[in-house]
Design a protein around this nucleic acid. Sequence first.
DNA 1: CTAGGATGAAAG
DNA 2: TTTCATCCTAGC
Length: 749
Amino acid sequence: MALAAPLFRTFTYRVPDGIAVPIAPGTRVLVSFRNRPEIGICLGATVPPDGITLKPIQAVVDDVPSLPASLLHTGKWIADWYAAPLGLTLRSMLPTALTSAKAPAPASRTQRMVRIVMDLPSLLQREQTFARAKQQRVVYDLLEAQGGAAPLESLRIQANCSAGVFTAMAKRGLVDIRDEVQQRDPFADRAGTLPPPNPSEAQREAVRAILAGDPGQVFLLHGVTGSGKTLVYIEVLRAVLQQRDKTAIVLVPEIALTSQTVDRFRGAFGDDVAVLHSGLSDGERLDAWQSLRRGERRIAVGARSALFAPLERVGVVIVDEEHESSYKQSETPRYHAREAAIVRARAEGAVVVLGSATPSLETWERADRGQAIRLTLPDRAAGAQLPPVTVVDMRVELKQAVKERNPNAPFDETLGVFSKSLLVALEQRLVRGEQSLLLLNRRGYSSFMQCNACGDVPVCPHCSISLTYHRVPEMLVCHYCQHQQPVPAVCAQCSADTMRRRGLGTQQVERVLSERFPEARIARMDVDTTSGKWAHTQILDRVGRGEVDILLGTQMIAKGLDFPNVTLVGVVDADTGLNLPDFRAAERTFQLVSQVAGRAGRGPKGGDVIIQTRMPNSHAIRHAITHDVTGFVREELGARRMPAYPPFVSIANVLVSGLDQAATAATAVAAASWVQRLVERQGLRDLVFVGPAPCPIDRIKDRWRWHFLLKSSQPKLMTRVARYIAERCPVPKMHELRLTVDRDPVSLL
DNA sequence: CTAGGATGAAAG
DNA sequence: TTTCATCCTAGC
């Protein structure tokens, strides 16, 4: 059986009398492992290894396997391909509530909440109130720190006190205790009415082709933004569910779960849809899982892990926005949900639909090689035109602006941020009462501080990343580890009084905008404004209701929005990311700019796109503005040939990290030469070795990072080598040194 | 002589 | 990864 330990091996247990044999593979069993109760997954019967006393299985937990054959198969593939321990992989496929040996948490809908009803603003009052009740003060302070309200149980654990403390506080009128319905699923009441389906000829043709697909067939549904891919999905789902009595899985990027996409599915299929998103509590997740398992819901919609929905008779697996990098999991098992979806679909005899306006090169290649059928949706559904795109060369713009600048006038902060044409266009929308989207993809690379005298830039003491300037509250913040520090008055290096802000972030742009257009209603959407559970939805709802004139945001505004009154999309700086030390930089930029460009002109009023760049000739920008995927792919494939990168070779990134810089470097070098010797000893001619070197971001959260790359045109060889390294490469047990193998990495940063 | 850190092996 | 046994050293 498989047990959730980071071990590349399985364990054998004895089936005692009283437990029926055989136990079906995929069944959860309770066993003692390392002298503590653990949930294991039965893999099948084996010949017992000799010389070992087998421990008995203590109980069979499932009456039907929690992991049916197709899921078990998918799990084994993931563990194998991504060089991950099987036990950890299988655990990650089940809701946590099912993999813990502790008593299962009931899916409670209400929870006991405590909230402050008596304010104690002065310190004196507080001292008096809690003179003899120390525990109460602890609870009160905790509660206050959490915004005045918190679940009783979590407070009790944090304060490490008994429930009596709360009763006493309630009696004194300090707090109020009541059962409250837990944060409701905001999608629950969105089950609405079916929009009248009116597919175009191209859409109907795509649906026909998909429904005629052989089991395991992969389709690439390539449709420009607004061409109506979702309607194709819905029609396919309808046929799969109603005509064939099968079930379906729809994967969407996490971000899309807060948007209109989910509403469409809920609207069309109502209670047949289980929405799995990251905001679910363990109990709610278990609820959703069980409703799928029992067949009460037949469509699972969710991010990455929804692929593991316990559905039987799956007829179709849809991967929307298949190019999204969030489909790659960044922890063990480091699987790509798109690839795993293909494996599961094959095991289920289902067809796969990979949808995107800007397909990944991998998928495009797959279609070129005949391993996927390409379906194209050429037209915008409503017959609207793709918006015209204007490119503003910011180099020219700046030169011009400097030349025209009145030396006596106060410094114009819009200079270098907004081109004239973008300002004029924004002005127009405001006058006409239309909406604008502004994309500033600046997170992680946004406004930093620099000393004008010596050029020193404050960097995070834990990560090798320049700190980002935040205005409210005024702090320097690290976007990798959340480290914060006050804004320095003088330079830490040379003590000069010349620290200046450089570059720009969303906050600064927001301020510049509001000064320029004081009457405009501006909303900002980035990780800082969307920390709450449903903050995305709330901001987007405001835009939908027309309460926002200009929505300013990072890439999260580029995805899945569909507002008819948005008639202008501006990309403030398209170059961001184009120069990252990552072989996918151009692909990402192309996708981002293309996607955001498609946000304009979704309604009858049409729209404009304005893109500001200092690199108007890069192929990413050039092809994005003409919505030309084919052209971009052709040039980008050329660039990936030499030196070879995916899709021409399979790659694995071996990352070594640790707390000590020298030890990390030494370990990486040692690991690399260990692999090098392996390659030589085995005479592996088709295995190319790059590095080792410090990672482009060479420190994150106190850990130094080195890496080296392996390339091979033989996937099977890569599987073998990756696994051998993950399992055997020696790593000293010091300075928290760790080695991880990331196969098919989505980013090399 | 022992507590506590470091190290290494095992997990059925 | 966690645990457990063993070995070693600092400190009593």
